[in-house]
Amino acid sequence: MGHISKADVQKIALLSRVHLSDEEIDTFSNQLEGILSYMDTLSEVDVNGVEPFISAAGSGNVFREDKAVEGLPREAALKNAPQQGGGFFKVPPVQG
């Protein structure tokens, strides 16, 4: 793992949908570089033929009957919305 540049941090921030201040970009590029180089110690481990650990809950899916049950009433689901109207969540324009 090489150097984490400010541009790298900006790219990760965009992918993470977190806007960062210039100061945060500086701090994070230093800190992430330190943490990631520590994580690089994993490259020493022999993982040839080792399966990835997916779940402790046992392999395979858990199925249930496809049966309709009562859901949360619409008003209750909308109650915590920052903005709502006409029974929907309201957001700024997605395009345009």
Partner: peptide, 19 residues
């Protein structure tokens, strides 16, 4: 997310996104 999350949460989201 900039206003709502504190530094440690941002750091972990960024690390997780990176890996």
């Amino acid at each position: 997310r900039e206003e709502g999350f504190g530094p440690e949460v941002k750091r972990r989201i960024m690390l997780g996104t990176y890996v």
